[in-house]
Amino acid sequence: MKEFAYSRATGVEEAVSLLAGGSEARFLGGGTNLVDLMKSGVEAPDLLVDVRGLPLGGVEVTADGGLVIGATTTNSDLAVHPEVRRRFPALSQAVLAGASGQLRNVATVGGNLLQRTRCGYFADTSRPCNKRVPGSGCPAIEGEHHNHAILGWSDHCVATNPSDMGVALAAFDAVVSYETVDGPGELPLAEFYPAVGDTPHVETALPAGALITAVTLPAAPVAARSRYRKVRERASYAFATGSLAAALDVRDGVVHEVRIAFGAVASRPWRARAAELSLTGAPATAESFAAAADAELAAAKPLAHNGYKIPLLRNLVVSVLTELAEEAAR
């Protein structure tokens, strides 16, 4: 690991100005991803600005019934918060489905949004990777890619975003707030992760040196009946091969409102807007749910070894929405 200086920020302004002074400076939250990547040489900062002690933790209910989640809130504190479990149960389930208890106790919400892909080529500094070394190539396209993207990838990168939390945040129209030396700003999650294109190393639309301060979820009564389901290669403590966050409001047998987002299929949490459009106003039946999944997955371009994700996601959509519809009918 390269040597680095360490500074503990006492305020948000101080934190962003400290980072602005360092050429290869990084904010340190829980460190569960960053410190690991520093050990393997993928990240080599010369300064860590520790932001975990900043007064940015906690979950608050807004006047209209949404939530403001502070950036340094730990995954555990988010997942177990009664108002998260009541108003956005799929978000609680998504966070609980990720990592382990030891990691969730330390990892932060801001850090989760910025975590890096688990593509094996990205993590291996002896191999090319366009994300790590722009222009060096992508061995995954012809190589080991059984858990890589089926949607939104480019010839430059087929890596996926590994977050579970982000999938639920995408379904619920999260907005990311940040601070820079030039003042604060906001990005809807839908604009937070840019398309891969020919710049897979540009992973967020955040301005340089920006510190995420909070994530806001607008009020969404539909989210009170929501679910996150994750498929993985072992029963627990593994990244998804496919996952789904969904919320459903059925009235008189017809879909009044639906939210669907996919995980482990693209470089970003994938909001399934074509599926939502197909389903809104349709009868709440397994046939409609399957047709909605097909509407979204029509755009999928599987690689040689990950075509299984298409039926996997389709089955997830049908089974989870069927369960939510049955619950609503009770």
Partner: peptide, 24 residues
């Protein structure tokens, strides 16, 4: 951070000590 052998309690909460910097 993948095996849990280094788990300790930090302020009463379990955490892996291999991904925590001592200075932090």
């Amino acid at each position: 951070g993948q095996c849990g052998a280094c788990t300790v309690l930090a302020d009463g909460r379990r955490a892996v000590s291999c991904l925590q910097l001592a200075v932090a």
